[in-house]
Design a binder for these strands. Structure first.
Length: 387
DNA sequence: TCTGGGGTCCTAGGACCC
DNA sequence: TCTGGGGTCCTAGGACCC
């Protein structure tokens, strides 16, 4: 293999994925502002005449957020991550559908299989996006991109957007440039004209905090970042992040497309319908806590991992988040052992404030075949206390 | 009327060992 | 009594991503 050959990397992003899957189920909603989200959002009801009754954003009450929205809803200012109550103020007539993750996972599998039939070197980046290494794939980039998009559409009825460049960084930026249903192919020589004018936060890895810090240095675009002295960036962001920023602003990114990696942690968490108090709502909390541990144990068993570190996460009424974890002498996999370790963690948390969210995490994962269990004393099983 | 759930990676201090 | 440096593991928090 010629290692000096320039790579050809694609980033593929499904267009408004969850909302688009819902439109396959409810084609009558096409062209309308539709929002997916909210745990307690109600599924459409079909009346005696066969008409479907969709719930509207204005009827929603609760703590849910927008998981995704159609382009029509985005035009009204409704974007993912926004509280549903706030989006209801912007688009009261928008249709609200509950998230159906089973369906999304199904279509996720379908589109990834379709891409794999054209180009098998794929890195999974979540439910709705992937990187594809096209270096060994024959053919013109535009032709290959069209071929992939057609395969995805034939398998799912869904559209996607693709960016093709020499690396993951630039392809990720490019897949967004012509959304939805677009193809953007960029040659490294076009860096200054097409990438440098873009906002610095378009770089994957520059989030709200880093963006604010950059803005304070009067750096707003990728071009301004590229023009900034590396010493300035290192002084403000540290050696590693500063050097990384200097690199990516020049369009440099050598990260390979990684087709598989072992998971590092699994977790389950839940936000309550109302904030709960450690004392007054003790029974309810204990029940939820046990449930999270059991679901986590179930996830571990289903995926075939044991774990050695158990952690908990609490979010209080004021949104302060704390975590505690405990590394055990041996691997564990069953719910009651997880519950015991999580209870040990919980003992180290001050519980004066009302609690908004509770989570349990398993870290230090090992495939069950490689797990090492240690002898333990017989421990009481349920019920456990929440304290 | 605020703000979900599931992940990864990084940093930094302290313990502990050589 | 005082003085090291390096490496790894554990824990807590935080930024970021989808």
């Amino acid at each position: 293999m010629d290692l000096t050959r320039q790579r050809r990397i694609a980033h593929l992003d499904m267009d408004a994925f969850f909302a688009s899957v819902e439109l396959l189920t409810y084609p009558e909603l096409r062209g309308q502002a539709v929002v997916v989200g909210g745990r307690n959002a109600s599924t459409p009801i079909t009346n005696a005449k066969g008409d479907k009754q969709f719930s509207r954003l204005r009827d929603y009450a609760g703590r849910g957020v927008v998981t995704t929205s159609t382009y029509e809803a985005r035009a009204l200012g409704v974007f993912s991550g926004m509280g549903l109550m706030k989006s209801a103020a912007l688009a009261p007539d928008a249709i609200l559908l509950p998230a159906n993750f089973e369906a999304y996972r199904h279509f996720s599998r379908l589109f990834k299989e379709a891409v794999a039939s054209v180009a098998p070197h794929i890195e999974d980046r979540g439910i709705d996006e992937i990187y594809i290494d096209l270096t060994q794939v024959e053919g013109d980039s535009l032709v290959v991109a069209k071929h992939i998009k057609q395969a995805v559409f034939d398998a799912t009825g869904l559209t996607c957007s693709i960016g093709i460049t020499t690396n993951k960084l630039l392809s990720k930026i490019c897949s967004e440039l012509d959304k939805p249903d677009g193809i953007t192919i960029l040659d490294p020589s076009e860096l200054a004209t097409r990438i440098w004018p873009l906002a610095a936060k378009k770089i994957n890895g520059i989030g709200p905090k880093a963006n604010d810090k950059l803005a304070a240095l009067n750096i707003h675009t990728i071009g301004e970042l590229a023009a900034a002295p590396a010493e300035l960036l290192v002084a403000h962001f540290g050696r590693s992040t500063g050097a990384w920023m200097a690199q990516v602003s020049q369009g440099i990114d050598e990260r390979p497309v990684v087709t598989w990696s072992e998971p590092k942690s699994l977790s389950r968490e839940t936000t309550f319908d109302r904030d709960l108090h450690a004392k007054h709502d003790r029974a309810r909390l204990s029940e939820i806590f046990t449930n999270l541990c059991m679901r986590l144990a179930d996830d571990l068993q289903r995926k075939g991992y044991a774990c050695r570190t158990i952690g908990i996460k609490l979010k209080f009424a004021d949104f302060q988040v704390i975590t505690r974890d405990l590394t055990l002498p041996g691997d564990v996999i069953d719910g009651s052992q997880i519950r015991l370790a999580a209870t040990e963690c919980l003992k180290r948390v001050p519980l004066e404030q009302r609690i908004r969210l509770l989570g349990v995490r398993a870290g230090g994962l090992r495939p069950v075949q490689a797990a090492e269990y240690v002898e333990r004393e017989t421990q009481p099983t349920l019920p456990f206390e929440f304290e």
